[in-house]
Computed example of a mutant assay.
Amino acid sequence: MSIFKVILLAIVQGLAELLPVSSSAHVVVAGKLMHLNMSSPQMTLMLVMLHTGTMFAVIVYFWNQWKRTFFSSADAFKRFAIRAIWATLLTGVIGEAINKLIEKTMFKGSSKAEIELLFDRLDLIAPALAAAGVIILIAGLMEKRRMGAHEQVYGDSVTMRQAGWIGAVQGLCLPFRGFSRSGATISTGMLTGASKERAERFSFALAVVLTPAVLGREFLRLVKASHEATAAGVPIDFHGSVVSSLLGAVFSFFAGLVALRWLSSWLEEGRWYLFGIYCLVASVVVFGLYHAGY
């Protein structure tokens, strides 16, 4: 893959990842338009490395906020850690259960059952975008109704109940490209009574916790595919794929910082519902591209 395409995908990923509009859907559509195989091991590793770049953007952008909240004292960190572990546990259990269910039903009788093989299916991405759009729209409209109302809070973190719901919904997001992780989790936090700022902080902290595990999974998948391809006499450019992915991570990092500033300003100004409208419109566009043969 050319450097130009890597940079373009990185910019799309970085700008979309930290907005609640599903970066995966945008990157897959961009890749499809560039005639790339978005379900190949090389490309799924690229996607995860792009996520890694934006993960570092999250750390840089939120670090001062996290120091004032999650790391302000031993007690605050303990509250956050318990909630993060609880949410991540639910994410892993629900996400893995859905993965296995999909692999055993949609790949029944196939010699190769990997959830990643569905990642470039526009006919699956479009309804996932629509589902995310509906959740975001509902959360945004409810937020506007109760603006100015007194909110029940617990310290500087979300409650255990809110963390559980956020983690569970994050698990639902993992297998489906288009079902925006940030959009669904922040909206879930808002719908369960958390302020949008607390939901945003906790959601992106969970992304930092989750990314290394997902990166490891995709790296091992590429290693396995590389060995299989070498045995079959059609070797994969393993080192080239890794270098391209690292380059993409750098560009997605800087694009992610820009997106985070935009996201936070829109959260503060009560425009959350507009992201839901965008996802619904994007769903229609993706359906159109699918029927056009992409």
Rank of each mutant, 00 (worst) to 15 (best):
S72N: 14
S72C: 11
S73V: 02
S73Q: 05
A74V: 07
D75K: 09
D75T: 12
A76L: 06
A76W: 12
F77Y: 12
F77V: 08
F77T: 12
F77I: 06
F77H: 10
F77C: 13
K78A: 13
K78H: 11
R79S: 14
R79V: 13
F80S: 03
F80C: 06
F80K: 02
F80P: 01
F80M: 07
F80E: 04
A81C: 04
I82V: 13
R83W: 00
A84S: 09
A84G: 06
I85D: 04
I85T: 08
I85M: 10
W86F: 13
W86Y: 10
A87S: 02
A87T: 02
T88P: 00
T88K: 03
L89M: 12
L90S: 06
L90A: 06
L90Y: 02
T91M: 10
V93Y: 00
V93S: 02
V93D: 06
V93G: 03
I94H: 01
I94R: 02
G95Q: 01
E96A: 12
E96K: 13
A97P: 01
N99Q: 15
N99A: 09
N99K: 14
K100N: 14
K100W: 10
K100P: 02
L101S: 13
L101G: 15
I102C: 01
I102N: 05
I102G: 06
E103W: 08
E103K: 11
E103Y: 07
E103Q: 12
K104F: 12
K104N: 15
T105Y: 05
T105H: 08
F107N: 09
F107S: 07
K108R: 13
G109A: 06
G109D: 10
G109N: 12
S110C: 06
S110P: 00
S111F: 08
S111N: 14
S111G: 15
